[in-house]
């Protein structure tokens, strides 16, 4: 039996079909707008285009909104599907049930970032009286749309590729240092290197943010994202599970840990989003965003939250894991 008929998957498909429809309409309008938008014209066409910009913006805004919920729901679904796929204990097994799994997750995340950047450009655009970024932002949306198509195809390939009869590895194997896979190799980097790097990057990040160095803050945020995830898997997660051998980025999304994973990842992703967004908008559109404070705030909350787990463990038990 294919997993395609499970209710979660059907809902994901319904959502995708709707998003695809609306985004296709938006990209159709966006194409027309970026082709023919001319502020110096006083024709009926120009006024119609101006009005269409509101529709396109609204569709994109809602797409982002729905995509964020969908992403959380997608992860939720992976987690739940682990019940059906033999060997899988959490979303990791399900992700690895097909070679596309990891890429689908990454591309979905990346897609949310891209839509988010668009919204920030849109916000800046609406502050200007002469449509400074209108044409640019709609051109950028066409690129996002193409990316969205890739995302959908990959996701389809992934979901149809999962075979519930096939036994997959659980997180215990995938994140085992003995594993020769890429993730396994990454985790061979000892905590003695990962942890200090993680905190060092964070300190540097604060410093560059306070100096309002958008470029370096953006770059460091990318590193912070990578090392944050790495440290989560190899170090912090073990304290959340209170098991030295349980290194897994997915299990903490389960109800056993009060869904704390959603909060942790939301903080990390929001923090790095704003940091990277400032870089992106400055590099490509010359927009100075005042979001570094938000970035610091989220990143700081993330660091405090994940650090609290080992600290409290130590306070309670007097030893480190």
């Amino acid at each position: 039996m294919s997993i395609l008929l499970s209710p979660e998957i059907i809902i994901i498909f319904i959502e995708d079909v709707l998003l695809l429809g609306f985004n296709s309409l938006a990209v159709f309008l966006a194409y027309g707008i970026q082709q023919r938008f001319d502020l110096n014209q006083t024709t009926a066409l120009q006024y119609r285009l101006e009005r269409q910009t509101y529709l396109v913006s609204t569709i994109i805004r809602f797409s982002l909104f729905i995509k964020i919920f969908s992403f959380a729901f997608f992860i939720f679904t992976l987690d739940k599907l682990s019940n059906f796929i033999p060997g899988a204990m959490c979303g990791v097994g399900v992700t690895n049930a097909s070679p596309y799994g990891l890429y689908v997750l990454l591309i979905k995340l990346f897609s949310i970032y891209l839509y988010g950047f668009w919204l920030l450009i849109d916000r800046e655009d609406q502050k200007t009286e002469n449509y400074n970024y209108t044409v640019k932002k709609f051109r950028y949306f066409i690129a996002i749309y193409l990316f969205f198509l890739i995302e959908l195809s990959l996701q389809y390939l992934y979901l149809s590729d999962i075979n519930p009869e096939e036994i997959v590895s659980c997180c215990g194997t995938v994140f085992n240092a003995a594993n020769t896979s890429f993730t396994g190799q990454l985790l061979k980097i000892p905590n003695g290197i990962v942890l200090p790097s993680f905190y060092a990057i964070f300190v540097l990040l604060i410093w560059t943010s306070l100096r309002r160095d958008v470029i370096w803050t953006g770059i460091l945020n990318l590193f912070f994202l990578a090392f944050g995830l790495l440290a989560m898997i190899s170090f912090f997660s073990t304290y959340i599970y209170e098991l030295p051998s349980h290194q897994c980025p997915f299990c903490l999304l389960q109800s056993d840990y009060f869904y704390v994973g959603y909060l942790i990842y939301a903080l990390l992703l929001s923090g790095t989003f704003f940091g990277v967004a400032a870089l992106f908008l400055k590099l490509f559109y010359g927009i100075q965003l005042k979001v570094l404070k938000l970035s610091i705030l989220f990143n700081l909350a993330f660091v405090i939250l994940v650090s609290a787990y080992p600290l409290f463990y130590y306070i309670r038990n007097g030893v480190w894991l």
Binding site: E15, F22, L55, I66, F69
Partner: peptide, 19 residues
């Protein structure tokens, strides 16, 4: 599950009329 099944459908359906 139920929320995701129906609320986005409704809100998307109202976007164009709202505009």
């Amino acid at each position: 599950l139920s929320f995701m099944a129906i609320v986005p459908v409704y809100i998307l359906a109202t976007i164009i009329p709202a505009w």
